[in-house]
Nucleic acid binder design. Structure first.
Length: 259
DNA sequence: ATGTCCTTACCTTAAGGA
């Protein structure tokens, strides 16, 4: 089962680049972030024609997540538990029926800038809610994958220029600490488990020639429950997508699970 | 380097978010 995550920065703007990557990469399951679309406006037919079931959790203008899957999906749920007043569309779950059933959580973690401030408070509260949800799913002792745009640079080696991020919500100690708490639950950062060296990124800002200078950061992650980690056979970042026509500022990252 | 891109609304131009 090839399972990917991709922050597309607007489904309308990526209506050519996303199908092109799907056709080339052939993932079984894709979690999308920042679809920036309400459910009714999502161009589902484009992806159904490529063989994908489409489940969206959108909102107007901002945020919005979706799951595309060539394998059957069951028990789709929308929204991160823990705050009924939260109206931001940043979380979707589904069970993928492959040779084994895998619970997939697609997430778009709040950016949190400027920090300190209410946006940073929201980020940290959201991460605490995610920790609680992860704890509940881990108790099932089944394969679970938490994938998406975490808006967290886990360590300095995950940024080309870590000095540029020291006061940013993506790299502040509280953000990194909350990310480490997820790992401490028993989750595995799939990419870091297979690639120990520095210099692998999933995001390059549109500004200031970040791509041309390879001034990137690694903020898109797939965290695996122990039962999913046991099935991990491969994981890669599709960096070349950033050099394509009309690219997102993020690129896809994926895992292969033996199931 | 105040450097770009996407979306929406106040819609041929600016603002908010990232």
């Amino acid at each position: 089962m090839k399972l990917a995550t991709f922050n597309i920065n607007g489904i309308k703007a990526r209506i050519e680049a996303l199908p092109a990557w799907l056709t080339a990469a052939q993932p079984d399951v894709v979690c999308l972030q920042e679809i920036k679309s309400v459910d009714d406006a999502f161009p589902r037919e484009t992806f159904e024609a490529l063989g994908y079931q489409v489940e969206t959790h959108g909102q107007k203008s901002f945020n919005g997540v979706a799951i595309l899957s060539k394998l059957p999906l069951e028990d789709v749920t929308r929204g991160l538990p823990g705050d009924d007043s939260d109206e931001q569309a940043r979380w979707i779950e589904a069970t993928v029926i492959g040779r084994r059933a895998v619970r997939v959580c697609g997430l778009y973690l709040p950016n949190g800038n400027p920090a300190p401030g209410p946006k940073y408070d929201y980020k940290l509260a959201w991460m605490a809610r995610m920790e609680a949800r992860a704890r509940a799913l881990l108790a099932l002792e089944e394969p679970v994958v938490f994938c998406g745009d975490y808006n967290v640079i886990p360590q300095d080696e995950d940024a080309a220029k870590p000095d540029q991020w020291t006061t940013d919500a993506l790299a502040l100690p509280q953000s990194r600490s909350a990310f480490r708490r997820l790992l401490a639950l028993g989750l595995t950062d799939a990419f870091r488990a297979r690639h120990s060296e520095a210099g692998h990124y999933t995001f390059w800002d549109y500004q200031a020639g970040a791509w041309e200078r390879n001034n990137g950061i690694r903020i898109d992650h797939l965290l695996l429950s122990p039962q999913a980690a046991d099935l991990l056979t491969n994981t890669q970042i599709d960096k070349q997508v950033r050099a394509g026509d009309k690219p997102s500022d993020h690129v896809p990252i994926w895992v292969d699970l033996d199931c």
